[in-house]
Simulated scan of single mutants.
Amino acid sequence: MNRRRIALTLVASTATLPALAGCQAVDSVVDYFGPRPENRLLMLADAAATDALALSGVDDHAADLRNAQADALYAEITRLCGTNDAGNAPRSCEVERPTKANRAADSGEIMENAASATTAAADEVTVESRALVTEQAIALNAWLPGDAPDIPELSQPEQKSAADLLSWEYEQAFGLDFARAYVGPEHEDNVDHRLEVHHRRIDALQEALSRYGNVPQPEPAYSSGDQDLPHDSASALGFIGGLAEQDSRKWSAAASQAAQEETPDQEWVTWLIGIAAESHGMR
Rank of each mutant, 00 (worst) to 15 (best):
R283N: 13
L132E: 06
W251S: 08
A221D: 15
P216R: 01
G175W: 07
R5D: 15
R130I: 11
D177L: 13
A89K: 09
A105N: 11
A204W: 00
E76S: 09
P98Y: 13
P37A: 11
L44Y: 09
T78D: 14
G213P: 11
A244F: 06
A258G: 05
G108R: 09
T9E: 15
A54F: 03
V26M: 05
G274R: 02
A19K: 15
A48P: 09
E278W: 01
S279H: 05
N67H: 10
P145N: 07
Y32C: 14
R201Y: 11
A86L: 14
R200A: 15
W251V: 00
R194C: 02
W268V: 02
D265W: 01
G82C: 08
S107K: 05
Q227K: 10
V183K: 05
R97P: 10
W268Y: 15
L229R: 13
E207Y: 12
L20K: 13
L243F: 02
P157V: 03
N84P: 12
N88L: 13
Q136R: 07
P98S: 14
D123M: 08
T14D: 12
S279V: 01
H193P: 00
L154M: 07
E76C: 03
A276W: 01
D192H: 08
S233L: 10
V133W: 00
A75T: 13
Q172F: 07
R249E: 09
G108H: 12
A181T: 06
E261V: 01
D71A: 05
A139L: 05
E76T: 09
N2L: 11
H280A: 02
L243M: 08
I110K: 05
H231L: 05
V58F: 06
C93V: 06
A63C: 04
A101M: 02
R66I: 04
A7I: 02
G146F: 09
V183R: 05
A70H: 06
Q257P: 00
A86P: 02
W271I: 08
E171S: 12
S107A: 14
N88W: 07
L154W: 06
V125E: 03
L132M: 01
A236E: 01
E38A: 10
S224F: 15
N113A: 15
A120E: 08
A234F: 03
A179W: 04
A259R: 04
L53C: 07
W143P: 07
L65N: 12
Q172M: 12
I110R: 07
G274Q: 07
E169Y: 07
V133D: 02
G146N: 08
I110D: 00
V11G: 14
L53N: 01
A255F: 05
L165C: 08
A131Q: 08
S279R: 04
P18I: 09
P218N: 06
P35H: 13
D27L: 13
R249T: 12
L272R: 10
V133I: 04
A236P: 00
A47M: 10
S28G: 04
G242Q: 08
R130W: 12
P152G: 10
R79K: 14
T134L: 03
T119P: 02
E96I: 14
W143S: 11
V215W: 06
A68C: 00
N2R: 13
E267Q: 12
P185Y: 11
D247I: 03
G274K: 00
N214T: 13
H199F: 10
N2Q: 15
A117K: 01
